[in-house]
């Protein structure tokens, strides 16, 4: 059974194909920033557009598909980090150990993945997402708010609360 779909399969496929052609490269840019690995980022891009195909009927972000794809892409990457961590706790420990052993000049950028792993142990999923949107994907407060369908004030409040932990995890504030 399942819910009836609003668009035909052919329409959905065509839409995804053209979205992939237009935006896959910048979704790759996003994924490679989070995952720090080109091959994994390529897989994440595939998974993002595959998920987008399934979710296309619920697309509700107005004119542009980009924020929506960013949201899916971010979630795909975070899930990959989490899943991989569960499967290989050892690996995660190694990354953490490496990160901890490096002096301060190891920037947040290089160890973003390790930092995200460590954040996942301390924060709930939504907070990790918000930190990723802001610090890793480089969205400003208004862009995060638009994407989540909440007020800018709510985002500011949340980011203020998370500021300390973000600093502890060497997340860089890029452009806000």
């Amino acid at each position: 059974m399942g819910f009836p779909t609003m668009k035909t399969v052919a329409e959905r496929t065509k839409t995804i194909e053209s979205l992939h052609r237009r935006y896959a490269g910048v979704i790759f840019d996003l994924c490679v920033r989070i995952l720090k690995d080109s091959a994994e980022a390529e897989d994440a891009v595939q998974e993002t557009f595959f998920s987008a195909f399934r979710a296309l009927d619920s697309f509700t972000y107005g004119d542009s598909h980009l924020p929506w794809l960013y949201r899916i892409g971010t979630n795909v990457c975070l899930k990959m980090i989490r899943t991989k961590k569960r499967k290989g706790a050892q690996l995660s420990d190694n990354i953490e150990a490496t990160a901890a052993a490096e002096p301060e000049n190891l920037t947040g950028r290089l160890s973003i993945r390790a930092q995200l792993q460590s954040l996942m142990e301390k924060l709930d999923e939504r907070n990790v997402q918000i930190l990723t949107y802001h610090y890793v994907a480089g969205m400003n407060q208004q862009e995060v708010a638009d994407m989540l369908g909440i007020s800018r004030r709510a985002v500011v409040k949340r980011l203020t609360k998370l500021k300390e932990i973000a600093v502890q995890h060497a997340l860089e504030d890029h452009h806000d």
Partner: peptide
């Protein structure tokens, strides 16, 4: 069949604070 083993748990756009 793709090389990426860890996407075995296929995922959609996970949304939630408490739910994936």
């Amino acid at each position: 069949t793709k090389k990426n083993v860890y996407i075995l748990i296929p995922l959609a756009a996970a949304a939630a604070l408490t739910l994936a």
